[in-house]
């Protein structure tokens, strides 16, 4: 109990991980340090920048402000879980970000893509305003916002089969 690790089962990208976590360990820490899933970057670590965004039960949330122990029984999706596990084929959002230069330094990209995925899943035909509004919590220090919005709109088109 006191000071000991709490055993939890975390379902990340469809896989179940049995892991011992400290009561105050964040999901971000556990993903990076214990599960080796370093695609989710740690930046501000205070819930401001959105870089550490993951989807929990389909909703984009800040993994740096989420306790891992409270994630048991939830469906966690990180950037590593987006590409097709069998073929390795990239998700349309990943593809457009690569093809249309949606990233510069790339730190905000996993969070941008996951937040955008949640947007498109709920609204398959977003406007540019919808995209800007949905991504308002994901900071890009390179200031690549216009391209990012363009990529998300292009990916939404692709995902409609257009």
């Amino acid at each position: 109990m006191l000071g000991e690790l709490i055993p939890v089962v975390l379902r990340v990208n469809g896989d179940d991980y049995e892991v011992g976590v400290k009561p105050v360990e964040t999901l971000l820490d556990v993903l990076r340090e214990k599960l080796g899933l370093t695609g989710t970057p740690m930046m501000c670590d205070e819930g401001e920048c959105g870089s550490c965004t993951v989807l929990i039960d389909g909703k984009p949330v800040l993994s740096c402000m989420t306790l891992a122990v409270e994630c048991e029984g939830k469906d966690i999706l990180t950037i590593e879980g987006l590409a097709d596990p069998a073929t390795g084929e990239l998700h349309p959002l990943q593809r457009t970000f690569v093809e249309r230069s949606g990233m510069q330094c790339g730190i905000c990209t996993p969070g941008m893509i996951l937040t955008a995925k949640a947007l498109i899943d709920g609204n398959p035909d977003p406007t540019e305003d919808d995209v800007r509004e949905a991504l308002a919590g994901n900071l890009c220090r390179c200031g690549n916002y216009p391209r990012i919005a363009e990529c998300v709109l292009a990916a939404a088109e692709l995902m409609k089969g257009g």
Binding site: G47, T53, A136
Partner: peptide
């Protein structure tokens, strides 16, 4: 309030 991510939590 905050950002969309904050509002989800």
């Amino acid at each position: 309030v905050g950002s969309p991510l904050v509002r989800n939590m």
